[in-house]
């Protein structure tokens, strides 16, 4: 399934560009930077702009271009294990081999479909659970006295500072067949044989909610804390009951926090690897795990790249929503 396109290009012209330069210079920001630098010399301002700019272009944006490129390559037994996209025919024609086999493969094989759908489902349900647990917590923290507020907030962030891997590991000891929960229930005589919790979707949900809860609570707290409490008093004064006031005033005003929190949980959860690997067991199909296995076990770099591009396409919309809110927040803070 190889499509070959011939791009005729002048011999001399083609040799002037190194492959990387060709990819880089086409990007408008690089073109802009080059002109800026040549025009201004190296003033302080352009230096401050260009250092992080070049860093992020090189180490954040270019890698995605490369992933895209390799997703169109063919897998070979070599180092590195993929074919080149661009080649020379008779030193005159630049050939561009676009191999869409990887994409066809991940579309045709139901394993990938199932993994995608399952990842979305798991991420969505975990996000909802996180919101249900996190909202009352954030609300409760925002409404306690300022002294308590800082302590509680610290307590929410604190687990984040201890190792994520070890916190997931802790759940193995709690959930496994001879783990803490089963031991307690059995010694109390409530159950006779252990409940199987490890290597089930349940364990994955618990793991994700547990690990990502701080990411949900923090943005929620930030919006709820900023809220003017006299708005609620005004609503009560106008005859609104507390629960209705919550639905009509507090909830709508906290939507930016809800969106930010949900995106902060949902997007990484879709690609999560550690939690399904450790808590979900071999039967849990999640796309992050699939990518990992393709890459490390099968050494199928092109397929892994195609999977990564597919995840990105799925996540483009949530990521853009997140960035929109993030940018609006930053502007509002000014």
């Amino acid at each position: 399934m190889t499509r070959i396109a011939y791009v005729p290009l002048g011999h001399r012209l083609a040799h002037m560009f190194e492959p990387l330069a060709r990819q880089l210079v086409r990007l408008p920001p690089v073109r802009w930077l080059l002109t800026q630098v040549s025009r201004l010399g190296f003033s302080g301002k352009s230096l401050v702009i260009s250092v992080p700019y070049v860093w992020l272009l090189l180490f954040f944006l270019v890698p995605f271009v490369i992933v895209l490129k390799i997703s169109f390559a063919e897998q070979v037994v070599a180092q590195p294990p993929y074919t080149a996209l661009l080649g020379w025919v008779d030193e005159k024609f630049l050939t561009l081999k676009l191999n869409i086999a990887n994409y066809l493969f991940i579309v045709r094989d139901s394993l990938y479909w199932k993994a995608y759908l399952n990842s979305m489902k798991v991420a969505a349900i975990s996000t909802l659970l996180c919101l249900l647990v996190g909202y009352p917590m954030a609300y409760g923290i925002a409404r306690t006295s300022p002294a308590w507020r800082n302590v509680l907030l610290m307590l929410v962030i604190l687990p984040f500072w201890t190792s994520f891997l070890l916190r997931v590991y802790a759940w193995i000891g709690i959930l496994k067949n001879n783990g803490i929960i089963n031991n307690i229930l059995m010694s109390l005589g409530i159950i006779d044989s252990p409940i199987v919790m490890m290597q089930t979707p349940f364990a994955v949900y618990v793991g994700i909610v547990y690990s990502y809860l701080p990411f949900m609570v923090m943005p929620l707290y930030a919006t709820l804390e900023k809220m003017d409490l006299t708005l609620l008093e005004a609503a009560y004064d106008l005859g609104c009951r507390p629960f209705k006031a919550f639905l009509r005033i507090t909830l709508p005003l906290s939507i930016p926090g809800i969106v930010a929190g949900c995106m902060l949980v949902f997007i990484p959860a879709v690609g999560e690897f550690v939690i399904p690997e450790l808590l979900g067991g071999p039967n849990t199909l999640m796309i992050g795990k699939v990518l990992w296995d393709e890459f490390f076990s099968n050494r199928a770099w092109p397929v892994a790249s195609a999977v990564a591009i597919a995840i990105l396409l799925l996540l483009v919309i949530p990521i853009m929503i997140f960035q929109h809110y993030q940018a609006r927040d930053a502007e509002a803070g000014r």
Binding site: F64, L264, I267, P268, G271, F273, G288, S305, A308, I319
Partner: peptide, 20 residues
């Protein structure tokens, strides 16, 4: 580019870095 890494799934960041 400065906010996207906050939410980028780790497997993607890791893979793209390696390929780079």
């Amino acid at each position: 580019m400065a906010t996207a890494p906050l939410v980028m799934p780790e497997v993607i960041t890791g893979l793209s870095m390696l390929l780079l």
